[in-house]
């Protein structure tokens, strides 16, 4: 089994793989498959994952996170052959009036920044998931395969967990305007704090495909 995950999004990708393996009710999506330099590269149309009612969420001026985990699975199997992870941090700049998107995946673990002026542009950017590296193209030479994707909006990420741990370990002091105070109980609670499967998570799946349906340039 080849598991290639983005360095920055590896934990999420592995979590996603475990979740994906469980299956569930997946929403059908369109997928494009291409063999590029010997690797299977997928593109997904994830418009159903970003309905219009997310506009208010993404335009609230806070940092919103979209975690995308894509897995390649045999049609009749639940162990992914390859997993791809991508994390998008979206912040609406209320001064500049534009969306600033930071994309982290295997190709750019440090993140690459994109900007979009409008919700329509942002939605297009989020929905049009491209360059999803699903491992060697030879892996799908035989049999029938399925591409599944899990999209989580504002999941409990490692960063959020760390930030929350810091927050409860150093709660605000009782004095108004006072500096954070160190709390023994809070420090222990932060140490014992585990993540959750919280967040808005949706599962998508493309129709099964075979090697013949993989485009070659």
């Amino acid at each position: 089994m080849t598991v290639r995950a983005a360095a920055g999004a590896l934990p999420l990708a592995l979590l996603g793989a475990a979740a994906l393996a469980l299956g569930g009710d997946a929403v059908p999506v369109e997928a494009g498959l291409e063999a590029r330099d010997g690797r299977l590269v997928a593109s997904l149309d994830l418009r159903p994952a970003f309905p219009d009612d997310l506009r208010k969420t993404f335009a609230n001026g806070l940092t919103n996170v979209v975690a995308l985990q894509v897995a390649l699975l045999p049609e009749h199997g639940d162990a992914p052959s390859a997993v791809f992870g991508r994390v998008l941090e979206i912040r609406y700049d209320v001064w500049e009036e534009r969306y600033v998107v930071t994309v982290r995946d295997a190709a750019s673990p440090a993140g690459r920044q994109l900007t979009e002026r409008s919700w329509a542009g942002l939605r297009r950017l989020l929905s049009d998931a491209r360059d999803l590296d699903l491992g060697p193209a030879a892996a799908v030479a035989t049999g029938s395969w399925v591409v599944q994707a899990r999209v989580e909006v504002n999941p409990v990420s490692r960063e959020l967990l760390e930030r929350t741990r810091e927050f409860i370990a150093n709660p605000p002091s009782g004095v108004r305007g006072g500096a954070p105070s160190r709390s023994v109980l809070g420090a222990m609670a932060s140490y014992l704090l585990h993540g959750s499967d919280g967040g808005d998570s949706r599962l998508f799946a493309a129709r099964p495909f075979t090697a013949r349906e993989v485009r070659t340039p």
Partner: peptide, 13 residues
């Protein structure tokens, strides 16, 4: 964002 994180992890906290 901190409060949102705490809210998301309320049960775990």
């Amino acid at each position: 964002e901190g409060m949102a994180g705490v809210e998301a992890l309320r049960a775990e906290i």
